[in-house]
Amino acid sequence: MIDATVREPAKLLSSRLVVSKGFVTVGVSTVLLFVVCALVAPTSVSGGAVLGMIPFAAVLAIVGLGQMLVVQQGGIDLSIPGAVSLAIVIVSHEPDGDNSRLLPAVILALAYAIGAGLLNGFMVGRLGLNSIIATLGTNALLFGAVLGISGGTPRSTTSLLAGIAGGLTWGIPNSAFFALAALAIVTVVVKRTVAGRRFEAVGANPLTARATGLRVTIHQSLAFVWAQLLYCLAGILLAGITNQPTAFQGDAYLLPAVAVVVLGGTSLLGGRGYPIATVIAALFLSQLDQFVLSLGVPYAVRTLVQAAALAVGVALYTVDWAAFRQRFIRRSPRIGTPA
């Protein structure tokens, strides 16, 4: 025991590239999936299929990044359907086909998003409500706004937005660039700025964060605002990608958004977030859809595969596999109490 104090310990190092378990799992699964696709259903990796898949993967990735920020603070955001739908409705209804009115509409959508984020943040961060309830209520209010603006009828998007969100640059869908930009911003801000690092610390343990003097409430509240801004971006893109978006387009994104966050390795209990893995998980789920579609199997199988992926994904993190193996290899010797 004494020698420990005498010996000069080696200086601790830090590797530049830290590869998370989530990144490896999701990354390898995605590569495998593409390989299987190429072998079993080549049409699912044809140029047209991939070009068709990428925009939806991009939207899911952006929504997933938003959900990840909320999950990092130990919350969950059920207001995604309303938020995405509202952004869609605002940017398609307000301009009514007039390109010059697109920018004001986008600004209006962002204003709504900030409002919704502040409402969620105030209720969860400040009033201490459970995030499930607070965001459930906000979701209903957002749908109220959706119907108030649209009256429930779809309207086609402006040609400008369709060009921006749905167009191609160098043969790649523009939406992919938006998703990559969102990923880059989230990653840099969360991992490389003071505020971002504090944000992760608050999520990992609010009590410790408070004891070190961090402003816990602010970080917890703002998570919802950042998330809403991302949902808004996703909604705007979706409005451009689909020609005549419906008022309930956002409904389809709630569960996949939670699924990609979980698959990416972010714990539902909060803490560190894995933005890159989350985005890859979005690609994985979207390609899975594509694969199943090209095989011609029913929608049901696709859903079941999603569920299985989710279960395996969560179990990888939650189950103590080492202990599990041990239990089957040898029974721990019973400590007897000699009488």
């Binding site: 969950i76 569960l255 939670v258 699924a259 979980v262 539902l268 209990l269 859903t303 079941l304 999603q306 569920a307 299985a308 989710l310 279960a311 969560v314 179990a315 939650t318 189950v319 103590d320």
Partner: peptide
């Protein structure tokens, strides 16, 4: 399996 209630029942939901 130590799933959080949300993760567990969400998985079952989708399935």
């Amino acid at each position: 399996a130590r799933f959080t209630p949300i993760a567990a029942t969400l998985t079952v939901y989708i399935a």
